[in-house]
């Protein structure tokens, strides 16, 4: 299926979970947050959240700055 992750279109496996998507980014989970279609998903729910075709996913991490 096709999703958009951080503004970039991606082809991913059907039923990919949010947790798996985040892991695939190689940033770990510590200090990371994610939102699907502008709704923040709690980390505890990532592995139970199956992404759907056309979902817009934003993954954030804590960085130096501000």
């Amino acid at each position: 299926m096709r999703i958009v992750c951080n503004g970039k279109a991606r082809e991913v496996a059907d039923g990919l979970t949010l947790g798996a998507l985040v892991d695939s980014l190689g940033q770990g989970r510590e200090g990371v947050a994610a939102a699907v279609n502008s709704a923040i998903v709690r980390r505890a729910d990532w592995d139970a959240t199956a992404l759907r075709d056309g979902d817009e996913v934003e993954v954030f991490s804590m960085v130096a700055g501000g």
Binding site: N6, L25, A33, E58, S61, V63
Partner: peptide
């Protein structure tokens, strides 16, 4: 204090959270 940014899916992330947690300081986003 630290900021939150969209992950650069192609780039390398310089993790600061881990090292700072090791110091025992409180993190304020």
């Amino acid at each position: 204090t630290m900021a939150i940014k969209r992950v650069d899916t192609e780039g390398h992330r310089d993790d600061i959270v881990g090292p700072l947690r090791e110091l025992g300081v409180r993190l304020m986003p």
